[in-house]
Design a binder for these strands. Structure first.
Lengths: 126, 126
DNA sequence: CACTCGTATCGATGAGTGTCAACATAGACG
DNA sequence: CGTCTATGTTGACACTCATCGATACGAGTG
């Protein structure tokens, strides 16, 4: 997991949601922070999207072709629609290689959630 | 309704949403797990709810009176509606003490998120 | 008991969302 | 070029949701 240490800017739009947010228990969230965090949670608030994200994340290298993950019980346009939403939320990135399109977990997504939730502060400090 | 009993919600069944879920990167989520996790994320996918939750969580003892947190820019019925949703999602619990109603962060909510995200596995395995 | 304050519920409404069928686009291959 | 496969886009529809005003309930207080 050495590559996920990098804090590079992925190919996100101008309104990427992921890089954000103070710990949730540290104090009252500001309105902009709350909106950013809510947008991120909203992207994961659908069971189909969650399963798609999970399938990509659990694939070797955090990368998967659409053809590998599209069996989630909904039609192909719906899969494409959900993948687009995950992309717009900054949780996934996509790349076309030949015939197929591959989706990757955006770098430092889980780490951003970790910071946001301020988990195990004692362990994190030491 | 009883006096101090606030546990009569018909919507919140025996299975609250929070206690759940394998790590998100460990493998493909099962459909029931995805639905549970999505419900939890959905409860936090609204900026107003996120700020309400944050206000409760950042109060001393993880507890706050509604009167202390209801200034989030929406009307009082809307605040009540959002608090109800957070309650139904298992993220908050409520208790009436005299005139005021106090909301607390449900135990092990953050820990559940931690397990779900598979953060700091060494520390989380305690 | 009447009045007031804090909180929950109801009903309505406008905005948003998940889903699909149909169509469009892009690359591979003959 | 034509065609096949893999994804994305569009338009429509049913459904959910966030919000509010009005109202009800519950607990103190005079």
């Amino acid at each position: 997991m050495s590559k996920s240490e990098v804090v590079e800017l992925p190919v996100l739009g101008p309104e990427a949601v992921v890089p954000c947010c103070p710990p949730i228990t540290a104090g009252e969230l500001s309105v902009p922070d709350a909106e950013r965090m809510a947008a991120m949670f909203k992207a994961l608030s659908d069971p189909v999207r969650l399963r798609l994200f999970s399938k990509v994340a659990s694939h070797p290298g955090g990368e998967a072709c659409v053809c590998d993950i599209q069996d989630v019980g909904v039609s192909q346009p719906t899969v494409s629609h959900h993948l687009k939403k995950l992309r717009e939320a900054g949780l996934l990135t996509s790349e076309r290689r030949g015939t197929w399109v591959y989706y990757q977990v955006a770098p430092s997504v889980v780490a951003a959630m970790s910071a946001m939730l301020d988990l195990h502060p004692a362990a994190a400090r030491t």
